[in-house]
Design a protein around this nucleic acid. Sequence first.
DNA 1: GGCGAAATACTGGTTTTCCGGTAGGGCCGA
DNA 2: TCGGCCCTACCGGAAAACCAGTATTTCGCC
Lengths: 208, 208
Amino acid sequence: MEPIRVVLVDDHHLVLAGLRMLLEPLPHLAVVGTAATAAAAYAAVATHRPDVVLLDINLPDQSGLEVCRRLTTDYPGLKVLALTTLHEKSYVTRMMQEGAAGYLLKNASPEELAEAIARVHAGKKYFSDDVQELLLRPAPAAAAGPLITRREREVLLLIADGLTSHDIATRLFLSALTVETHRRNLLTKFGVGNTAALIRLAAQQQLL
Amino acid sequence: MEPIRVVLVDDHHLVLAGLRMLLEPLPHLAVVGTAATAAAAYAAVATHRPDVVLLDINLPDQSGLEVCRRLTTDYPGLKVLALTTLHEKSYVTRMMQEGAAGYLLKNASPEELAEAIARVHAGKKYFSDDVQELLLRPAPAAAAGPLITRREREVLLLIADGLTSHDIATRLFLSALTVETHRRNLLTKFGVGNTAALIRLAAQQQLL
DNA sequence: GGCGAAATACTGGTTTTCCGGTAGGGCCGA
DNA sequence: TCGGCCCTACCGGAAAACCAGTATTTCGCC
């Protein structure tokens, strides 16, 4: 059986070397190329035509998300396995949207690494255990903050900018009275009594 | 001449493997041990008595800062070279306070890695170029925020809690008029026109 | 096609903040 | 010891925010 052809993409020489060292002893794998930038990654894939690409999200010249999208559209049979230290849900989901076949954390064991490559090459998905757990648990951020409407959010931002209700009304082509209403709804939704507390809460919840 | 004895500490197998691969071909170096946890690091240093430890800041069981302190106090001749992806100034300075002999980023080239180990073993300090630049540029946080007095800060916190000037006055055993003065001073110092903008700025500058 | 949520708007009144200018006492460093 | 900053405190007036309650339109969704 032919070995699985793999290209490694990471801006850290260390990680490239580590991957090489871990993967080369494996008989059913062949590391056919490495790249440290997005541009080099495109070139390496074009010349070596790998089966699987191990792709870091942090690259110096371009986001790994972008690279993932281009690779998967340009080479439909190609499997992209995302490899990163970031365990943030948004990254995982966005990476999957861009066509990645799996998501690995860099603290993965060598066995896990080999397993992941084999699985995505076989057409399956692969996620690290921690990543799976991450995906299962729904965003706790949503629970923390109250439900806010589009308009209220807009008003909130302008309040935080230091505009008065009247200013905001002018800006949004509204009556000042309407803005006051939105304002009051914000206060009640956040359970606070004045603007100061409102803005602090909003800031704590990254809404600004 | 005897080779420099090196112990590697990192919770990522990948990085350990990469370091091994990059360092083992070098004749004047000998990787005598590796560890993936703080506990394992202490054991490895105790048994192998290395000259240099490459130490990651992120370890599962304990902070690398703590590990650095214990190693440098227990083994005075030992050189600790911090190795991490984080380019945040606070980490660098704290690591140096704990007795590290240098600070490397993980995107360092193989040559830089070898160079760094040689230098710290020779009793010198070593910093990546980017890290040096980081150290030179003084904390922009201080420049960003205006100078605030003790009392003003106290008032600011209570404002952010949603108290009115009157409430704050009661809490601090002051006249409400005094609180208003502090309040106005805060507004002018921050260069804003109302409480909302004040709180947002304060939040951005981690003053809350 | 209607129900409900969101957005819009208003009345009328109270509280709070904002603006300006002023000023005395305490404390610390030049 | 003297000047400067901080903390304290005040006046009067304008602007803005907050409170309670109501009402119409608009829009998405079932």
